[in-house]
Structures are given as structure tokens and as C-alpha cells.
């Protein structure tokens, strides 16, 4: 048993040394720092302070399971119908539009936001940083 404990301590120490090297050399960003936003991105905390239109760019099945209250589903599959609804909503009361998908890596929100900027040139359109998960 003491031998296994010694092995465990050695593995933890070596891993910690590696992690420290990554942080000190600047190879990895510190997890506790706040990442910078790309152009056209907005944080959830900031988005919730303004009156806006949420657009859920995830597949409709995921939207059906859960979504941000009041969000409308708009993705590449239902583009025409959903865009018509969104335009109606936006023309009624023009306000910023925030598109979200499931995570930072999904990329759909940025693609949809880009397409929306082309179709709704006058609207203020953002993609949600970090995505949204129920």
C-alpha cells in the first residue's frame, strides 16, 4: 500500500509540474481568466440585461427538449419559415438579436448570425459566447 501511495504522489507531482509549466510558459490560458470576445459575440450575463430576441440555432429536437424562454428556433433546416417569423418579430419591435447554439465549439451560432447579418442588414446581431446548455 505505501508503494502505491508513493506511485500516486509521483504521478500527481509530475502532472502538476507539467500543468505549472503550461501556465508559466503561457502555452495554456489560465482557466480562471475570462476569455476575450470575438467581434460580434456577447456574453450571457450581458445579454440578459437587455431586451432582445433569442434565436436558437440548435437542431429542432434539442429546441423541443429545452430552450431559453421566448427563443425562436432558426437553423439551416427551417431557414425560410423561421426567418419570416423572426423578421415579423423584429419589425414589430426592433431590438438586438442573439443567436446561440450548444457550446463554444458548435460554430452554428456564428454561421447563423453571419447569414442573418446578410438578410437583416439593419439589425444588431450577436452570437452568444460559450453557447447555452439547459
Amino acid at each position: 500500500m505505501p508503494a502505491l501511495l508513493k506511485e500516486l504522489c509521483l504521478i500527481i507531482a509530475l502532472t502538476a509540474a507539467g500543468v505549472a509549466y503550461s501556465l508559466i510558459s503561457g502555452q495554456a490560458p489560465a482557466p480562471w481568466t475570462v476569455a476575450e470576445l470575438d467581434a460580434g459575440e456577447i456574453r450571457f450575463e450581458d445579454a440578459t440585461t437587455i431586451d432582445l430576441i433569442w434565436v436558437d440555432a440548435r437542431p429542432e429536437s434539442a429546441y423541443g427538449e429545452a430552450h431559453i424562454e421566448g427563443a425562436i428556433s432558426l437553423n439551416e433546416d427551417n431557414w425560410d419559415d423561421a426567418l419570416f417569423n423572426l423578421m415579423g418579430l423584429w419589425l414589430e419591435t426592433p431590438r438586438p438579436i442573439v443567436v446561440y447554439c450548444a457550446s463554444e465549439s458548435c460554430g452554428t451560432s456564428k454561421r447563423i448570425a453571419e447569414r442573418l447579418r446578410a438578410d437583416l442588414a439593419d439589425a444588431e446581431i450577436y452570437s452568444l459566447f460559450g453557447g447555452w446548455q439547459p
Partner: peptide, 13 residues
């Protein structure tokens, strides 16, 4: 971010 920082070093060790 923590996982991406620690897991690769753990795998290497």
C-alpha cells in the same frame, strides 16, 4: 478549460 489543461499532462505522465 481545467480539463484541457490537466488531462493532457496526466495522459503524458
Amino acid at each position: 478549460k481545467w480539463t484541457a489543461l490537466i488531462l493532457p499532462w496526466f495522459e503524458l505522465v
